[in-house]
Design a protein around this nucleic acid. Structure first.
Lengths: 110, 110
DNA sequence: ATATATGCTACAAATAATGTAGCATCAAGG
DNA sequence: CCTTGATGCTACATTATTTGTAGCATATAT
């Protein structure tokens, strides 16, 4: 069963939304899946292919969870972000910008 | 061995910084550890306690990785963010704000 | 009826996380 | 010195998660 805000998660019984979010994002492939859907809707197989052929078992489990959390939806054009999912993806875009600065900094340090 | 930007990670051979970041953050407890260090430096035991007594095996593995990635450091006052780690933590703060909106939206939907 | 695409499920093997115990080092007090 | 308490871990068996591969069921197009 997917955990939603208000419910206990790994290491937090408060149900604080951020804890629920950490619990979801801290699973393998979740961040990547959200990222790969940022530009366009993708079918299950396309998404799987863009995610380095992640096991369909895991992909399906993540998509199910993301749908229950109203971050992703599914229609005749495949999987895509909901409004909320798109908002979250914007933040991943910010992380992308930051990560480039981070990488440069690690370089000069070496 | 910790993967750094420029190196291959799970499902990406490009070394794109964002992929490296997803690989790190997509492990259990990494987001939470960065979060718990946002206010003050903490000793290993304090941090462990704030992270619901996460296993010391995992905590140590994460801290080692975060140190190698220059996001966390360790001194006589315990563990804390580096400059870059603090920047990343700011983004987690933004996620915190968003997550509250998200939780409300999920509520009204039920 | 075949062919092709879709969204999956099954399952064994490999990898990661958990929980508990406890060790080694250090600094402070008696 | 010799405990006491704190710190930063390591060891290790158990349990949970992920991986990789195969293939099934449905739908649409030929």
């Amino acid at each position: 069963m997917t955990v939603k805000p208000g419910q206990s998660v790994r290491g937090s019984t408060t149900g604080r939304p951020i804890m629920v979010l950490f619990d979801v994002l801290g699973q393998r492939w979740t961040l990547r899946i959200l990222w790969e859907l940022r530009l366009e809707r993708l079918t299950f197989r396309e998404l799987r292919s863009q995610c380095a052929n992640v096991s369909p078992t895991v992909l399906n489990a993540r998509l199910k969870e993301l749908r229950e959390l109203n971050l992703v939806d599914h229609d005749e054009n495949g999987y895509g972000h909901t409004g909320l999912g798109a908002e979250l993806a914007v933040q991943l875009g910010t992380l992308d910008d930051w990560s480039q600065k981070w990488a440069k900094s690690l370089d000069t340090q070496r």
